[in-house]
């Protein structure tokens, strides 16, 4: 469903991704590990279409479409979801209003009418419960003044509401305490399905202990230096990236 071929990406004139190729099949979970600055977040933002990340060459196909031709919003509507490492604050915009609007824009794409207020509240209550999100968080402004944990949970909540076919989690585990890591991982595990693929970007093994990957790739200097199964993650945890 996702095919990345010989991708070269630069950020602020700095060449970051170098001839990166990667295939993700339907329902697969791929973990990307690697030291700081190895290009892990770059691949996440490039896939989502962040205009600060410039594709110099290469191809990305997503559901047989040329992803590079699409705006970030069209990529989202096609099923791509990025859980941000640093979720952005939207002062003045209440979380509930925002969530409803993003749900409705996806419904519109599917030819559905906007969700009715009562139905949305019910949906929100049910999904929030799974993540231990208190309902009063939704009357606050999007991510504004949220704790690190609240922000990350709000990302997973959005993922759950939008039903994506490809989820990219950019260091979702950073800034989470053990309890939050556990409830967040459980929520993610419940979202696993044969139709949904994941790219999980992380520094550490601990998230992968909860969410078991099918493949592990090690990033170094903008390219994959090693790929393997989940045992690779444990080895790296013991030996480090240099080993």
């Amino acid at each position: 469903m996702l095919e990345i071929k010989k991708l070269n990406v630069s950020v602020e004139d700095k060449h970051i991704l170098k001839d990166l190729s990667l295939n993700i099949g339907k329902g697969e979970i791929h973990a990307i590990m690697g030291p700081n600055g190895s290009g892990k977040s770059t691949i996440a933002h490039t896939l989502a279409g962040n205009p600060n990340y410039l594709v110099q060459s290469g191809q990305i196909e997503f559901h047989n479409k040329n992803l590079l031709e699409l705006d970030p919003s069209d990529r989202s509507l096609l099923g791509l979801f990025l859980a941000f490492q640093y979720p952005i604050e939207l002062p003045g915009v209440t979380n509930a209003t925002y969530l409803k609007q993003i749900v409705n824009v996806h419904r519109k794409k599917e030819g559905l009418d906007p969700i009715d207020a009562g139905e949305f509240l019910k949906l929100l209550r049910e999904k929030s419960k799974r993540l231990d999100i208190p309902m009063d968080m939704h009357s606050r402004f999007v991510n504004t003044g949220f704790s690190g944990g609240e922000k990350k949970k709000n990302e997973v909540l959005q993922m759950d509401l939008l039903n994506p076919s490809l989820v990219i989690m950019d260091e979702t585990d950073s800034g989470l305490d053990v309890d939050a890591l556990k409830s967040t991982s459980e929520a993610v595990n419940q979202l696993r399905s044969s139709d949904r693929s994941f790219i999980i970007i992380t520094h550490y093994l601990r998230l992968l202990e909860y969410i078991e990957p099918d493949f592990v790739h090690v990033f170094q200097d903008g390219a994959i230096v090693e790929s393997g199964d989940k045992s690779l993650a444990s080895r790296i945890d013991q030996e480090g990236y240099a080993g």
Binding site: A48, G49, N50, P51, N52, D71, P72, S73, R75, S76, L77, F81, L82, F84, P87, I88, E89, L90, P91, G92, V93, T94, T97, Y98, Q101, I102, V105, H106, K109, F141, Q158, L162
Partner: peptide
Amino acid sequence: SDEQLFYVMQRGLDAEAAQGLIVNGFC
């Protein structure tokens, strides 16, 4: 910010709708 627009667009809103959301929240 560009980051705010990108964030909201990543959730499916086009550029003008994203800006509209942020501006309407503001006022």
